[in-house]
């Protein structure tokens, strides 16, 4: 598994496909956090939304690096298609952790806030929840599931917008609204834990679906 993760990471870094989602993330943060002041949690809501979009984009980019022939070789070398998919998810999540660290610290550097430990914890939690949901959506829109790039892009846009904006679909929109509600960070702990469970479940279901569809296509 370590070898697979190393391989995925190397191809991602060499392909430089991480750049567009990373730049989008920085752009959103620059617009939303430079000279921000006042309560920190609404700012972290914005960061979490940006993590969500960038996570989905990063995952699609990562999963699409490998063409069908190379994927066949990787699958045979690894002795099955599950381990390569898990490695893809692991690398995507690792990328999201980097984004989360940036999203945690940049508002403090660019704005004027007096952070408490609880606020920082809520910020990390919200961003990681959105990261899991973004990776899950990214998998479903990758070429493992949708082979035609046009359909893939349209599906990705639709799913990301829907998840971001529809209040009825957990976990992204409810979490963002929770952070913007003006409630104190201590009140958010339990709801966030619930949404974290939903986010992990979303990612797991999406991974299983991706694995099923990719296996069935062949």
């Amino acid at each position: 598994m370590i070898a697979l993760i190393h391989f995925r990471l190397s191809t991602l870094l060499h392909s430089q496909r991480y750049l567009p989602p990373a730049l989008l993330f920085l752009a959103v943060l620059a617009v939303g956090t430079v000279n921000s002041s006042g309560p920190l949690l609404p700012v972290y809501a914005l960061c979490a939304g940006a993590v969500f979009i960038s996570a989905a984009w990063l995952t699609v980019a990562l999963a699409n690096i490998e063409g069908p022939e190379h994927r066949a070789i990787t699958v045979i070398s690894a002795g099955g298609s599950r381990a390569p998919l898990v490695a893809t998810i692991a690398v995507a999540l690792a990328g999201c952790v980097v984004l989360t660290v940036v999203g945690l610290l940049l508002p403090l550097a660019w704005g004027t806030h007096s952070p408490t430990a609880a606020e920082l914890a809520v910020g990390v939690g919200a961003q990681l929840i959105c990261a899991c949901a973004g990776v899950g959506i990214g998998l479903l829109c990758s070429r493992l599931v949708i082979t035609r790039p046009g359909y893939s892009l349209l599906t990705a846009l639709a799913l990301v917008m829907l998840t971001l904006l529809a209040p009825a679909i957990p976990p992204v929109n409810p979490v963002l609204r929770l952070l913007s509600s003006g409630r104190g960070p201590h009140e958010l702990l339990w709801p966030l834990l619930g949404f974290a469970a939903v986010a992990i479940a979303t990612l797991a279901v999406s991974a299983v679906l991706t694995q099923r569809v990719a296996a069935r296509r062949t």
Partner: peptide, 16 residues
């Protein structure tokens, strides 16, 4: 379609 070198690619495949 890989940007890795042949040597690096084979090294990765061997480790996998």
């Amino acid at each position: 379609d890989e940007r890795l070198s042949a040597a690096a690619y084979l090294l990765h495949m061997g480790r996998i």
